[in-house]
Design a protein around this nucleic acid. Structure first.
Lengths: 349, 349
DNA sequence: CTGGCGTGAGAAAACGCTTTCCGCCAACAT
DNA sequence: ATGTTGGCGGAAAGCGTTTTCTCACGCCAG
């Protein structure tokens, strides 16, 4: 009638149980379980039997404590609901689990201030971390990263630490998509279709990837003075795009560059409701090439971000770090423009 | 010039460091950090200062070992790329993190045989687990669950353990979507639109939720003898749906029930390419109501599964279990049919 | 026959923490 | 002044492992 002590606490066999059942010392059991060759074959067999009969497995917790490695990494993302981060998470998870690592996931809900504590907290429970914090201020990130090492940053390039500040210049590797190049590609695509008056629906202004897009626009306008590219604050989700239909109409632009595919899809839907034809009346581009982009009507012209590879590469970097190797720094994916049905020639005026 | 021992091993201040810096014993530091009131205010302040100056935080690992709780739960999903599981993961993560729990995620890649070892492995590193294993054979699941407790199952109802088998009948709670009711709703919707010849594009045949849909079809046909519902094996992704266009055409059905929204979207796209009009020529329904469903063209008629709530409810159950309370068992969400543009009256014949 | 040596296994320390147990000392009642 | 509380802090026993250290044993060479 003995009940387990707390209800929560599952006991499970301990190494001591195995030892006494097999009539050997703890050390011997440990040696057997870890495949040490310095143990007599007969004894080893007896130990293995005892372990099997008790269903024994070494407690990862205890092992972690003594070994100093948890075989776990953490990943912090701004929004688990966003396909971009889902893809990255997936790539990361695949890579990690292939090498026997586990993945702890934390969602900051786009709350830049939560990111810091979340990352710190998660990091303490594992061996390394992949951080995706697009909104965090530059200085805060710079201050945070040393505390997180080994770490890898996704989709932004952290300020390299000041030289000669005591920290050996072991700055944190990053894997990023080149948003600037991607948007430039889209701009060129639209320009070559004859569009001169365009509208950019911006994401959150602090986000690093938004800055990159703005830079691309400035640059493009400098070299193509006949193009007029307006910017309107929008957001990063369906609703934001859906809600921007009026702005788009009012702008008189013939082409719209949405911050990402989600925004573009929302916009597409709203335009359809108003009877505005895409691409005959207005062209629309997205960004990211999420799996759904090719299934919109019309299919969405967008710039490809290989999110899963982003995650995979992040894992490679982190894995190298964990093994004491030095990873290549700063991989940058150059997005490809994928022309689909949502863009077409600028309408005659 | 002293380098840290292994490169991987970040040391960080220990409780001993704080103790000696503050000139007190380990016990006192521990008491202060855990907010015990039995310590002198002045002393406590000194300890806190020391801790702060050293940037000390108690090692979660060591705490877990002694406390017997990791403040972490695991979740096993068949495919991180599937919006359904992403939603569930999100709901789960939100609930868990709200109560200070961390989430370990494992992706079984639709490999039913991996699920077992994945779950077991993940479970050992935390306090509980949420299992989403639609394909795992009934008996395997039944045998596995006792080893995983406390556990919650998503989207299938585990066979209750045999009565009087020694285990007190503490079977595992589950939260499921009622796929049978959902499909019945869709069938009724189509039937009321005049469709009599329909086609069901099936998912993987072992999956529990596929069985439920088939049951709904059998039942519906029994009570509506004038309806003919054919079944064709298909799959669970875009491509599967896309590849089924020919089958759909050949079937002569006026309405297609896709296994889920992904399949429906793929089909929609393929039908569009062939110039087949939806819903004029053929009606299409999905299942799940993923966020994208309302942005297809035409918007997809589907049955709503509140995936995020699924995850949240799973957390509630698990949370109760972790606190030694008894959770309500077996919550079942009754999906709602959401009529959108992809379904319409059956064409005149 | 004995000293040295390799081999295999047990004892014990360490990992970083929590918590019980004890003892110390001041304050209070007798 | 002495016996009794009661509050507060230190010592130590774990939590379940791994790993070094040490030792017993048997073997071979001297």
């Amino acid at each position: 009638m003995a009940r387990s002590r707390s209800g929560v606490r599952r006991v499970g066999a301990t190494i001591g149980d195995v030892a006494s059942q097999a009539g050997v010392s703890l050390s011997t059991v440990s040696r057997v379980m870890n495949g040490s060759k310095t143990v007599d074959a007969a004894l080893a067999e007896r130990v293995r039997e005892a372990a099997a009969s008790l269903g024994y497995t070494a407690s990862p917790l205890a092992r972690s404590l003594v070994l100093g490695t948890t075989q776990t990494i953490a990943v912090v993302v701004p929004d688990l609901g966003n396909p971009t981060f889902q893809g990255a998470l997936r790539g990361l998870s695949d890579g990690a689990s292939e090498q026997g690592y586990h993945v702890l996931v934390a969602d900051s809900h786009e709350q830049a201030d939560e990111e810091r504590v979340l990352a710190l907290d998660a990091r303490r429970r594992c061996d390394g971390i992949v951080l995706c914090a697009p909104r965090m201020p530059e200085e805060e990130l710079a201050a945070l990263l040393p505390l997180l090492a080994p770490a890898v940053v996704i989709n932004r390039i952290p300020e390299p630490p000041a030289v000669g500040d005591g920290q050996e210049a072991s700055s944190v590797p990053s894997v990023v998509a080149d948003y600037e190049a991607g948007l430039t590609g889209l701009l060129q695509h639209l320009y070559s279709l004859g569009h001169r008056k365009m509208l950019y629906l911006a994401g959150s202004s602090q986000a690093s990837s938004n800055q990159s897009r703005l830079a691309a626009i400035r640059e493009f306008q400098a070299s193509n003075p006949d193009a007029a590219i307006a910017t309107s604050p929008c957001g990063v989700g369906f609703e934001d795009g859906h809600g921007s239909a009026q702005v788009v109409v009012d702008s008189g632009a013939t082409a719209v560059l949405a911050f990402n595919d989600l925004v573009a899809m929302g916009l597409l839907s709203a335009l359809g409701e108003r009877g505005i034809r895409v691409p005959q009346d207005v062209s629309v581009t997205g960004f990211d090439d999420i799996p759904f982009a090719r299934y919109t009507t019309p299919p969405l012209t967008t710039a490809t971000i290989p999110v899963e590879q982003l995650g995979q590469q992040a894992w490679h970097r982190l894995s190298a770090l964990l093994n004491g190797e030095t990873p290549e720094r700063d991989l940058s994916f150059g997005p490809q423009v994928v022309p689909r049905g949502s863009t077409g020639p600028a309408p005659e005026r």
